[in-house]
Design a protein around this nucleic acid. Structure first.
Length: 936
DNA sequence: ACACTCACG
DNA sequence: GACGTACGTGAGTGTT
């Protein structure tokens, strides 16, 4: 190569501080501050653009500080000790520097234990040995030690890109009055207040320069103090000699670090535009993005690709943000708060910190009626307390421990929890909101680490506090079992000794605080802020209100149904045993399989992995078609058994004694796609598909003088599929209000009749779920070849669907996750699993997730807006009670039902706005009735 | 604790 | 050629 190599070493860490103070506080579309990142990005752009200039780079690397700790801290523990914390809006920008660098496909080098300065010095030294010129892009005065301008041989200079000046020997002389090799001596005398290098007291830049000029070097200057005339300076030099010598070591640059990347690997080539474009657009750097569109690739016209030593990170594997180091969690630090004075002290601390983690402990795991036993607070690492409020008293002879009276404590906590200026943090705050609502206490504003974790990592792992603690904090929490035991010997939290209760409860609060610190930082960096703040976080309080409202259930009616079912089952049991020729447990699939396939010798059975005969619905229906009378009986018996045990019996037991209503519990993080799930009892799977099952819906009733309103999105997932996959025929059919399955039947079969419409419906759903020819064949009872032909026909008629599937899978494989229209991520780690089966399963789930997830986002947006919309219409006595994925159930005073229906429909139909406008209309069907069954 | 079955969208 | 047979859930029952 004829051209001389010229290495540019960019001091990324120091640059960002300067850019932060110099540039306006820009924010990206997600609301993350990116002013400094923008400055950094324009600088990199400019540097890369100068590639072919005479003095421009041939090689380039960005050097970063690995952490705030380095070997210098071992030499001097006060090194950089009094650095102020970086401003709040600068913090999230640090990790973005790495993302920006990767977006340019440039190497980003850092090394544990060393500062950026050391790596820069080592790279500069190595390059000079190779005869390369070096430019250090920085304005850090410490690095001026490295400047060299020999008459012959390689040069090292510095470039201050903000002032756009090059710094050489002259600049060094101007600043320090000495040559670069003596800069360290000057620095050692003057010290550095920013890095907390002590230097010599009373010696600043002027005196330091003068001394070094006069005596020639540091040692000589210190030695010379003895012969100076008596002065404060002389005394200081003698007294602080050791400090000066220590400082000399601290300011010295380590020039022989191992080089993580070889020099040749730093070669600058054409910059691939795509990752850069993605980055620029993500952060709203529009002018740069526009330049890129005009073909102005920084780095000039495409040349040979750079030999990448640092493999370009996957675009969505942002660097893990680093938090300031924290001491390990220590349960011995926690305080048990038993006096008003101590409580006030903690509340004051929370106000001062503006953030407090909160956890409530209850006697039973029931937020609607569980008695409050205590509250824990944490204001930071090592700072947590437990305020017992309802301990003891379960045994009337036992002495109650001393506690702050419940009313006094709640009065004070009430003010704190309502304080706008104090952010309340908790893990699954929906629970705590519910518990405190019993005492008339509301919590706002709040952050929920459970919901935050879900917004970031859905699909990667679960989100329990203990699990996240292990994962993110490397800390094992005391488990509930450790404290309360299990099974028969389990005790209520109210019976736990205060010291033990404090360890457990305060730890949970501290862990929540630490998790919050980490997750809060990650949200903006990983694009989770929008879904979290706009959808999921507000929903926690809304859903809690629904849970607390509960729904009225007609116990007598359920009891009557149970009785009828029991009678019918008894009758069937006799018939079944007779047909079988012997009595057996019909509810045991194992016994039933043996009766059917071994004893009765029926043919065509299949066995599952356990080696037992399958007796599922499909199998029994097949037998029924083959004319086996016992099969029909068993199917009917099973249906009744299911309805009785799961619904008519169980629901009666779920009626809350205090409220007389049934209160389900919704999980905000239960389904990976973003759907809610419902437990204790599950009110999202109440029967509707069969006439017998439907009767159970009539047990759900409105309070006297009220009605239930059921509002359903019609065909929402198919509509979303039509929009997302951009299928003109389907969109048109929806726009005209056509029967979508009939329209599909015409496309697939050329005509509509009961048979083709049914098949078309099955195919439509197959598409949403990720189709396979075997799966479809099984459902349609055709051969896999015929199913394949149908699929091919479908893709041919609706090519958008085929593209959607391809694109979704490509993107999911590349990024590791899928996204809904509103930006909710679902991760699919098994997409790259070794097993073909696992992969195929993940692929189907990945095809479905954006559609199911977008539908979930839509109804959640509607739910989050509903309370205010109803209130604005003067309908604040209309209560939202249930959500069943595409349906909302409300309870309204009879005379307000019609008005409420209008508001509800409007809010649900507009749920996508203003974030986006769908290319298909959303339709909402409203039904009103005295029972849930009536409302459909 | 797990498999099976089945209720829902 | 083997694999296993649609996406997402929760609950009850029987078996190990």
């Amino acid at each position: 190569m004829s051209e001389k190599n010229h290495l540019y070493l960019v001091d990324g860490s120091s640059y960002i501080f300067r850019a932060y103070h110099r540039l306006p506080p820009l924010t990206n579309p997600m609301g993350v501050p990116v002013g400094a990142v923008y400055g950094y990005t324009t600088m990199l752009w400019k540097l890369a653009k100068d590639l072919h200039d005479a003095d421009g780079p041939t090689h380039l690397a960005v050097i970063l500080d690995h952490s705030s700790q380095s070997f210098r801290n071992e030499i001097y523990d006060q090194y950089k000790a009094n650095r102020p914390e970086p401003p709040e809006d600068l913090r999230p920008q640090f990790p973005l520097i790495r993302d920006a660098t990767r977006a340019f496909s440039l190497p980003c080098i850092e090394m544990e234990g060393f500062e950026a300065d050391d790596l820069i010095a080592s790279y500069a030294e190595a390059a000079v040995r190779e005869g390369w010129d070096v430019t250090i892009v920085s304005s850090d005065k410490d690095l001026m030690q490295l400047i060299r301008e020999p008459a012959e041989g390689p040069h090292v200079d510095m470039l201050d890109t903000m002032k756009n000046v090059r710094l050489g020997l002259e600049a060094v002389n101007e600043k320090f009055g000495v040559t670069p090799d003596l800069v360290g001596d000057v620095l050692a005398l003057m010290g550095d207040s920013v890095d907390n290098v002590p230097g010599v007291r009373g010696v600043g830049p002027k005196t330091a320069t003068k001394l070094i000029q006069e005596y020639g070097n540091l040692t000589a200057a210190l030695d010379g103090a003895a012969t100076m005339k008596a002065s404060k300076l002389r005394d200081n030099l003698i007294e602080h000699r050791a400090m000066a010598e220590l400082s000399r070591i601290l300011v010295d640059l380590k020039r022989d670090c191992d080089l993580p990347d070889a020099l040749d690997d730093l070669k600058l080539g054409a910059i691939p535009p795509l990752p850069l474009k993605t980055f620029l657009d993500e952060h709203g750097f529009r002018s740069l993005s526009a330049k890129l569109d005009l073909g102005a690739t920084p780095g000039g016209p495409p040349t040979l690709p750079r030999a990448a030593s640092t493999p370009a990170a996957a675009p969505d594997a942002p660097s893990t943000p680093t938090l300031p180091p924290m001491p390990p969690i220590d349960r011995s630090l926690y305080e048990t708060v038993t006096t008003i004075e101590a409580l006030d002290r903690w509340i004051e601390a929370a106000r001062a910190a503006h953030v407090v983690a909160v956890d409530t402990e209850t006697a039973t795991l029931d937020s609607v009626t569980g008695t409050l036993v205590g509250v824990s607070l944490s204001t930071g690492p090592g700072k947590a307390c437990y305020i017992p409020l309802g301990h003891g008293g379960t045994d009337m002879f036992a002495e109650k421990p001393e506690q702050v009276p419940m009313a006094d404590a709640l009065g004070r906590l009430h003010a704190l929890f309502a304080d706008e200026a104090v952010l309340k943090v908790g893990h699954n705050l929906k629970y705590d909101i519910g518990v405190l609502a019993q005492h008339g206490i509301a919590i706002a504003p709040y952050d929920d680490t459970l919901v935050m974790s879900f917004a970031l990592d859905a699909g990667k792992h679960q989100h329990g506090l203990d699990e996240l603690s292990k994962l993110h904090l490397d800390h094992v929490c005391l488990s509930f079992k450790d404290v309360c035991g299990t099974g028969k010997s389990q005790i209520s939290f109210a019976e736990v000794q205060l010291d033990r209760a404090t360890e457990y409860a305060a730890e949970d609060a501290e862990v929540a605080w630490r998790l919050w610190k980490l997750l809060k930082l990650r949200l903006p960096l990983e694009g989770g802020t929008r879904v979290y703040e706009m959808v999921d976080r507000p929903l926690a309080a809304v859903v809690e209100t629904m849970e607390r409202a509960g729904i009225m259930v007609n116990r007598d009616y359920l009891a009557r149904l149970s009785g009828e079912f029991a009678n019918d089952m008894l009758r069937m049991e006799g018939e079944i045993h007779e047909l079988a020729g012997q009595p057996f447990a019909i509810g045991s699939p194992k016994q039933l399989g043996e009766i059917l396939f071994d004893k009765l010798g029926l043919k065509g059975g299949r066995k599952g992995k356990s080696g037992d005969w399958s007796t599922d619905q499909n199998e029994l229906e097949r037998l029924e078609r083959d004319g086996v009378p016992i099969a029909r009986r068993i199917l009917e018996w099973r249906q009744l058994a299911k309805l009785k045990s799961t619904y008519t019996d169980a629901l009666q037991q779920q009626i809350n004694a205090k409220t007389g209503r049934v209160h389900t519990s919704y999980s905000l993080v239960g389904a990976q796609t973003g759907r809610l799930s419902s437990t204790d009892p599950n009110l999202q799977n109440i029967p509707i598909r069969t006439e017998t099952g439907r009767q159970i819906r009539d047990a759900f009733i409105a309070a006297p003088g009220h009605v239930l309103i059921a509002a359903d999105y019609s065909q929402i997932e198919l509509r979303l599929a039509a929009h997302m996959a951009d299928v003109p025929e389907l969109k048109e059919a929806f726009a005209q209000g056509q029967d979508i399955h009939a329209a599909t039947a015409i496309e697939l079969f050329g005509e509509v009749n009961r048979d083709t419409r049914g098949k078309a419906k099955t195919v439509n759903f197959s598409i949403l779920y990720g189709i396979s020819r075997w799966g479809l064949a099984g459902r349609l009872e055709v051969t896999p070849d015929e199913a394949q032909a149908l699929i091919a026909r479908y893709f041919e008629r609706f090519p958008g669907i085929s593209d959607y599937i391809t694109d979704t899978l490509d993107s999911a494989r590349a990024k590791g996750y899928t996204e809904t229209l509103f930006g909710r991520k679902t991760w699919f780690p098994r997409l790259k699993a070794a097993s073909q089966n696992e992969r195929a399963g993940s692929e189907r789930a990945a095809i479905n997730a954006p559609i199911q997830g977008t539908s979930a986002d839509l109804i959640k947006r509607a739910m989050a807006r509903m309370p205010k919309a109803l209130e604005a219409a003067g309908l604040d006595d209309v209560k939202m009670l249930l959500q069943v994925h595409d349906e909302l159930v409300f309870e309204a005073p009879e005379d307000k039902a019609a008005a409420a229906g209008d508001v509800i429909r409007t809010v649900m139909m507009a749920a996508a706005e203003p974030a986006l406008t769908l290319s298909v209309p959303l339709e909402v069907e409203i039904g009103i009735g005295k029972s849930w069954g009536d409302a459909h």
